[in-house]
Nucleic acid binder design. Structure first.
Lengths: 189, 189, 189, 189
DNA sequence: TACTAACCGAGACGGTACGTCTCGTCTTCCC
DNA sequence: GGGAAGACGAGACGTACCGTCTCGGTTAGTA
């Protein structure tokens, strides 16, 4: 039934999806999250507004798909030999990700959405954070941490937070380079 | 000259400032940043819309002042005896600030619109970051840091970032308590 | 081409035109030209404000159409047998038109804003004056006038002006009845 | 009492009256009745807004005094030898008066005010129309009119109306010159 | 080949916030 | 107490975007 319902009638034009997502990314960089509007995306993509609403229920959904459906290589921190190296690589990866202009523009909206929708929070956490997190936890346990799970979470919070702040509020290069040196999760207080 | 220019005409009613800022804080908590509108603030504060625009050029400026010009005791980190203590107090203070409901409500939207208001961006650093920053820099210099200015900035970025992430994305109590222990700005790599 | 351009998109709802024009007429009588506002018309007609601006670029245009596009029988002077009869019928028709309460309410404001809307000024002549004017010109030429075009225009100016003055400033019945007798466009000086 | 009340305190600056009236006349010509605003008059006259409201209760009152407190010679039709000559002179005088740009701009407002305030209607009629009217009535009686009073009123209505229409809606020179020839108040139908 | 359901663009719809403007009043200091 | 400067509440202005809808016209797969 579902299949027959789906396949009946004219199928959706996949070119519209691509054009809309690209237009969304471009406009996000050009005018920012606040001034981004569905009508502007539709105009830029040479697409009718209903075609947009048929695919994404709101501006937020569209932006998320436009920004976070990248096909990059997966988090390259899984084989870090030490916690220090894990931290170094995590900073490099996260800084690089948050430096992309469309990501910078979309981040605040993402934060707001995560705050208001705990289900997405856990989903993103699972998809994006967990693999690297378990790696770090193992490293810390091997290095003698008494509470490796907590230490790993706290470390990741710090990495993400620092990259977030420097991405949104600016940060000089020397400061960015210095960040990894300050984190010592396995040093006793 | 300045004084005569200042005192000419009817002076602005300071009660309007208070009412508007309070209404802004209330509405932030009730309806959130997105649905917060100047007209709603004006209505709630029993104030004309032009009176609002006379004082703040945009919603961003108004919310900024409503959220970040609290009358609490001034940053209580100025007399910290060691960098470790400074970090502990900064975490406590910032976590407390970011836990206030109107701050939680305003943060993402505010961050998004900081992109278009560089003046607010610098104001944020000046008002909020600088005082404690110089204190920390002095402490680090006394404790033997080779680059105290950079280390201080990096430390503050980490503190703010971690509090931002835990405020918006949640964070368990043990993780929150562990955060200060991970930061060791004066330890050589 | 023209047809396809015409029929693209959702067609305008003709009921909105009628409701707006009727609301405009009603409000004109109730509150007068000065206190007539687009928002009041929109509210009264249960219509969005943009729907009004989509149809009429200004209050002047809207009132103009509301007042001067009546659906009465067309100007009943086209088949007048003599210039004297034409004048008699024109007076009757124009007096009747200018006696309608919404016309009385709109006239002064409309006249004031005709200054800034030359398009409405010419539209007024075209819509209201021209048909009867050519009829009168033919009659005068047949009756031996040396300058029928000028005489016809002058006659019409006099008819309209007299009705305007009596409508706005009042005029006793005997005076009104006497007006047609004074005009003799084809009598040599 | 009245006098003592009047003379108490600082006397009003008469220069303000002149400046305001002049500014009003200028602006009337430049922007028209609709877009004429009290604040614009105050700015142009280098005068505070309250000083305006202290003198005139509304824009209408100010405009009327600005436009209709002329010191021209009185109506020069009192000694016309015939009704034809009276009509000729009346047209010349009225056309000249209504051609002044500030009068053109103020006329619609005047009409509206006269319509809504019958007391002013009779006052203006008495001051402005009556002298010439009685002259015309005498001439018509002498020339054999059966109803000289009615004929005189009807004639004046026609003169004023025709000048009003040509002033507001435009009128070519030949038409203007032709107007007096069409009026024959003492010709029997 | 014809039917039909879902797509497409264009654009109108009611609603609502925007930021500006003018209104007429009020309040302050100066003369 | 008059005068200027200017803030005040009220409210209309015309524009923009929201998300929905209604068109005429396509574009498939099914009958």
């Amino acid at each position: 039934m579902d299949q027959s319902d789906r396949s009946r009638g004219r199928p959706r034009d996949p070119a519209i999806d691509d054009a809309a997502l690209q237009a969304c990314r471009d406009l996000l960089v050009e005018v920012g999250w606040d001034k981004l509007s569905m009508v502007a995306i539709a105009d830029r993509a040479n697409v009718g507004r209903p075609a947009l609403y048929r695919r994404w229920p709101s501006k937020t959904h569209l932006v998320f798909e436009a920004v976070f459906s990248w096909q990059d290589d997966p988090t390259p921190v899984d084989d870090a030999p030490t916690s220090t190296e894990w931290i170094r690589r995590s900073f490099a990866y996260t800084q690089n990700l948050f430096a992309r202009p469309e990501v910078r523009a979309a981040l605040p909206g993402l934060m707001a959405s995560l705050r208001d929708h705990p289900d997405r929070q856990s989903a993103l956490w699972k998809e994006f954070g967990l693999p690297g997190l378990s790696t770090l936890e193992s490293l810390l346990r091997a290095e003698g941490s008494a509470t490796p799970a907590i230490d790993a979470q706290a470390t990741m919070v710090m990495v993400i937070g620092a990259c977030l702040v420097t991405s949104l509020l600016g940060g000089s290069s020397p400061v960015l380079d210095r960040l990894p040196d300050l984190l010592h999760p396995n040093k006793n207080p």
